[in-house]
Nucleic acid binder design. Structure first.
Lengths: 196, 196
DNA sequence: CGGTAACTGTACTACTCGGTCCAGCATCGC
DNA sequence: GCGATGCTGGACCGAGTAGTACAGTTACCG
């Protein structure tokens, strides 16, 4: 609700969002109690309601936080080169295994928040739109550089790629095995290469 | 817990699972209260605990119910022919739109249940394994008929296909738009055709 | 250094939800 | 018909949860 003005305030708010992000990612949004979040963040309830008007708004901040994480990682690579895409895919696989097969930091929240309807669903749609746009821009760059045929549709390709990523995460999480995600990303990469 | 022996008993149990399936699919597992389920099924709490020992077991029955739905639909087509696969994909798209972009009947539950851990997660893994096997068997048939090259790996292809389906559902649900799912399934089909 | 506003801890409330219990009703073999 | 068993309704309980109230502390600014 209120934006923090002091250094301490900013740190507290950030700690709350961080703790909430971890717990909601691991257990799910609805399964995470505010008391747990506060205990993990090491502060009381008044702070939470000083900065957020409801659990819903905290969820929105968490979604934003997780999206920034994902886009930040993507930003470390060149999504307009074949090597960059490949490296990004490898990083996704490694991250999923390292985090214990808990799924996509954004996608895991997305399913629950989409079902909730209302503003939550709208926020999820926007988050994915930003992710899709980032990927599509990379593909558009490749098309202009002649690395992709002019018949390639960056928007649709970006959506199909993201779908493979999300589906790969989902199956990998269900099986607690990286295999399905690797198969999904291999297929996604081959699909992109077919337009080279 | 107890299996019903009379006709009335079977109908009641079936009504409970059906109502729970609808509600859990629409709102999520944890967001669905037992009282809501019972109200929708038109019976009291003692029935539920006469047939199920916990909400968790009810969830397992719902998952089974939804998987049967999905496999039943798949069974209407010939998953070892190009036309059959195409028709199946079209049916998936149509179903998603018709049900109001609520996602995959199985996948929507899967995310929440996987995060819950324990037996729930195991059951989800098994459900997807059965789905994957069914698709893989179709592809294996195609390979033996020479419709797919011998280098094609039915298991991995089935996983990649399912990943595209799940990811397509997820994005389509987030955007409330069939476009992303269509893009995902188009890519999945093209990937399969590349082994023709 | 002093006042103001931001920040913080915690007790409390109102409510929801999973699960239990028990008394009563239907059903079916004999 | 009649007992045994399966089925049914709903009141009840305890745990947990989102959100509030309020009094006290800390940090910034002139």
């Amino acid at each position: 609700m209120t934006e923090p003005t002091t250094r301490r305030g900013r740190e507290r708010k950030s700690a709350i969002v961080g703790a909430a992000a971890t717990l909601m990612y691991e257990r799910g949004v609805r399964a995470t109690g505010l008391d747990e979040v506060l205990a993990a963040a090491g502060c009381g309830k008044s702070q939470l309601y000083h900065y957020f008007s409801s659990k819903d708004e905290l969820g929105a901040a968490v979604l934003e936080h997780q999206l920034a994480l994902v886009l930040g990682e993507l930003g470390q690579y060149r999504p307009d080169t074949w090597g960059g895409i490949r490296a990004w895919f490898d990083a996704l696989l490694e991250g999923q295994a390292k985090r214990g097969f808990r799924g996509c930091p954004v996608g895991a929240l997305a399913v629950e928040m989409s079902a909730a309807g209302g503003k939550s669903q709208q926020r999820v749609a926007e988050a994915f739109a930003r992710w899709e746009t980032t990927v599509a821009e990379g593909l558009e760059g490749m098309r202009q550089q002649g690395k992709l045929t002019s018949s390639a549709r960056p928007g649709a390709l970006a959506q199909a790629t993201l779908a493979s990523i999300q589906g790969g995460y989902l199956l990998s999480t269900a099986h607690h095995d990286i295999g399905p995600m690797r198969a999904a990303l291999t297929a996604a990469y081959a699909r992109l290469r077919s337009f080279a």
